[in-house]
Computed example of a mutant assay.
Amino acid sequence: RRTEYFLRDQIPMGVALAGYVAVAAVSVGVVPKIFPQLKWYYILAVYGMAPVLAFCNAYGMGLTDWSLATTYGKLGIFVFGAWAGASHGGVIAGLAACGVMMTIVATAADLMQDFKTGYLTLASPRSMFISQVIGTAMGCVIGPCVFWLFYRAFDNVGLSGSDYPAPYAVVYRNMAIFGVQGFSSLPKHCLTLCCVVFAAAVVINLARDLAPEKVSRFIPVPMAMAIPFYLGSYFAIDMCVGSAILFVWEKVDKAGADMFARSVASGLICGEGIWSMPQSVLALAKVQPPICMKFLSRSTNARVDA
């Protein structure tokens, strides 16, 4: 009965196809105006490839709850960056194609997850789809406004060493350069180092899987070790402090920690992210903090006191 109820209010195939064609037509006409390096036939090729990749991503996300949209986006970087070539702005073309590809694939997976939730809760798929369209339309307005707020509030946004370094932007740009120029664009010994680190990650994972539990708990997780290399040291410090708090909490009240640790951690992470908005507003208004804290070395502190 649940399946019958859910399929009774399904979206007609003709509407879905017409909507996809309409969005593709808008993208073909608008995106090349924003990124001239991304020709209209590149966009057409992206929309031709996207349904197959979107199906694979949605199916995989339904099984694992893990979206691989970024992986398909990287595929777009290499394919369209190499297609355009270095002399025709292949780096920009690859990155722009990656953005289009990721948007299509990720949206499809998210919508399928929403439909899955609707199926379990007996919600109308049409209502969920309309809500998704409304949310997407709001994002088209809110997203650029948030970017403008950060861009105007912080002079060095996106630069390495700033409060908002955008580490993934550097990673994707380097991948685009690599896709256009090949192995010659890599620094010396970079490929060798990548192979060594990859082999080390495989060995460490095997050691964790094969070692007894008493030993494996002390073997680090390669994925967790890799995150600070992408996001920077500040993330590692936050996670280290959080892990220390969790360790003490488990010693004091293990039952409470097992029950509420994930909720508390999620709240702390969300709170830190939400604070960035008022921080941007204060910076945009040129508000100076009443108190500043700085940590100095012993020798520097001695010179300051003198």
Rank of each mutant, 00 (worst) to 15 (best):
G60P: 13
A25R: 04
L296K: 00
G76D: 01
D253A: 03
I142C: 11
T71D: 13
L149Q: 05
A16Q: 03
F150G: 07
A207I: 12
A106R: 06
Y164M: 04
P289M: 01
A283R: 02
F78H: 06
L231R: 05
P36V: 01
A18P: 01
G48M: 12
K188V: 15
S216L: 12
H88K: 11
T300H: 07
T103K: 11
I245D: 04
S160T: 01
A283F: 05
Q279W: 10
P165W: 00
A244N: 08
L95D: 01
A50P: 00
P290Y: 08
V248E: 15
L284G: 02
F235A: 04
F150V: 05
M13H: 04
A108V: 10
I177F: 04
G90V: 04
W66C: 10
L111F: 09
A255P: 07
Y172Q: 12
A16V: 14
G139D: 10
I142T: 08
Y230T: 15
E272R: 14
D155L: 07
G139Y: 05
H189N: 08
G62W: 02
K254A: 06
Y20P: 03
I11T: 14
K188N: 04
R152F: 03
V170S: 14
L53K: 13
W66I: 13
A123S: 15
G90W: 03
Y5G: 14
C56F: 04
R303C: 02
I291E: 12
Q132Y: 14
G94Q: 09
A166I: 01
A153K: 10
I177W: 09
L282M: 15
A45Q: 03
P228L: 01
H189T: 12
Q37Y: 11
A200D: 06
A24L: 07
V180E: 15
V215P: 02
S67R: 10
W249A: 12
A283N: 09
F80G: 02
D238G: 09
A123T: 09
I204N: 11
C240A: 14
M138F: 13
L120Y: 04
K251V: 07
E250D: 08
V197P: 00
A257S: 07
R152V: 06
T300E: 10
I177Q: 12
I142P: 00
R262A: 15
M239K: 04
I77Q: 05
M293C: 15
G62D: 12
V15E: 15
G182T: 07
A166F: 09
D9N: 15
G273N: 14
L210R: 15
F235Q: 06
V21T: 03
M112T: 13
L193N: 02
L191Q: 09
G76T: 01
L282Q: 04
D305L: 05
T192H: 04
L111K: 00
I274W: 11
V31N: 02
V91A: 05
R2I: 15
A69W: 05
V100D: 01
F178Q: 09
S87W: 14
Y119F: 08
R298H: 13
Y72K: 14
C145P: 08
V91M: 02
V79Q: 04
W148D: 14
